[in-house]
Amino acid sequence: MNRKKNIDREVDKTMNALEGLEPAKTDPFFYSRLSAKIENRQQSEEVESFSFGFAFSMAAVILFLSLNVASFTFYGNMFVEDDVQQEEFIDEIAYEYQVFDLSYYENFEEN
């Protein structure tokens, strides 16, 4: 019983420990530090935005060039292949229809 009373008293005292609490205060240089932080942040943002802009434009140029090189290499080979295929196709047609075989008509007359 005595113990319970003691605990209750301690609880009440602890509950009142924040009574008469003085408000915490900043020091007089708070605004100076804050404005310096804002200024630094603005500068670093400018540097960041410049470096981001530079990096972005460089990446765009590199992408543009590599796309050009890739497409030139790829389609260039395709055009060469196309040329070869087209020549082969003409030869085949010519062979099939014997367009350039002059002896065809001579043979035809003889028969």
Binding site: A24, T26, F30
Partner: peptide
């Protein structure tokens, strides 16, 4: 500047109430 000077102590005190650490309270107030 006027706004900061009017509210800095109350903001700092609020942050101290939650954080109980002067460095954290200063950072968060900023």
């Amino acid at each position: 500047k006027q706004l900061v000077n009017e509210h800095k102590d109350r903001v700092y005190n609020t942050c101290m109430g939650f954080l109980r650490n002067p460095h954290d309270a200063e950072d968060i107030s900023q």
